[in-house]
């Protein structure tokens, strides 16, 4: 009406600033990506090596090294986030405040350009983030899965080779351990009926610790089948859970009763989740 909103507006400095800022941002993320890729690739052999050499049953040395590497990758994520906040987002707000209102024609043009700048920068950051997650995944999977089946079979053989090598601390009579124990327990001498205390080996104790993970490894195909169903199929989940619990109880028969109670809970939760 007053010609006010169509007044000529030109701001080449702002356009130039957006252009160079976007280039700097892309170059900055390129450099961070190159570094994180370099770090990941260089770290993987050492990470594998330390996993294989780590005699600790919990693989704590490997876990510490992995945490350190993930820490550095996260540090790069934090760096990119901070720069994005300071140099992109804050800049966008400032730029938007300096150009004419979006309701005017020239204003709309500039607001569109700012929005395009913003979208280009955020999209580039999204790609960076995806690559970063990939690197983290590569590091996490570098050592591969532990072969829990082999470790378990080794413990079964070890137990077979020692089970009849014990004697009663009271009468010296030979005691054969009836089944594999995973925690300390009382064992009765078949001759004098005295109560001995049997302490399983560290390896046998670890079978208990790793039992669920082994059961998960054995039933991974069923879990995958469930997770790949779309929409998620509760029947397939049930098949997987049932099989996983069965395997778990096969490994540690002493815990079968407790595992069943846990299974009941999982089923109650399952019907709740799928009902939602």
């Amino acid at each position: 009406m007053f010609g006010f909103f169509n007044k000529k507006y030109d701001n080449p400095a702002l356009l130039e600033e957006m252009k160079t800022r976007q280039e700097r941002w892309f170059a900055f993320l390129d450099k961070l990506e190159a570094r994180m890729l370099e770090l990941t690739t260089a770290a993987i052999p050492g990470l594998k090596e330390i996993f294989d050499q780590d005699t600790d049953p919990y693989k704590r040395a490997h876990s510490n090294m992995l945490q350190g590497l993930l820490g550095q990758i996260n540090h790069m994520r934090q760096k990119a986030n901070d720069i994005q906040e300071e140099q992109i987002i804050d800049f966008v707000y400032q730029a938007e405040a300096t150009v004419p209102a979006v309701t005017s024609t020239v204003g709309r043009d500039y607001h569109n350009r700012i929005m395009n700048f913003r979208m280009a920068c955020l999209n580039r950051h999204y790609i960076f983030d995806e690559k970063l997650n990939k690197c983290m995944q590569r590091l996490q999977q570098a050592a591969g899965e532990r072969n829990l089946e082999a470790a378990y079979q080794e413990q079964l053989r070890a137990f077979e080779s020692i089970r009849d090598k014990f004697s009663c601390q009271q009468c010296g009579g030979n005691i054969t351990i009836e089944k594999m124990f995973f925690i300390d327990t009382y064992v009765t001498c078949p001759f004098c009926h005295s109560q001995n205390t049997f302490s399983p080996s560290t390896g046998a104790r670890m079978v208990l610790h790793d039992a669920r993970a082994l059961a998960e490894q054995r039933t991974a195909h069923l879990r995958r089948a469930y997770e790949e169903s779309n929409p998620r199929d509760p029947e397939r989940e049930k098949v997987y859970l049932r099989a996983m619990i069965d395997e778990w109880s096969k490994i540690i028969p002493d815990m079968a009763e407790e595992n069943e109670k846990f299974y009941e809970r999982l089923l109650r939760e399952q019907s709740f989740h799928h009902f939602k």
Partner: peptide, 20 residues
């Protein structure tokens, strides 16, 4: 004694697992 403690140490976490 230790075997009794170890059973409790195994079964209390089971109770927690069973309690949704």
């Amino acid at each position: 004694e230790v075997p009794v403690w170890q059973e409790a140490n195994l079964l209390w976490p089971e109770r927690m697992k069973q309690d949704e």
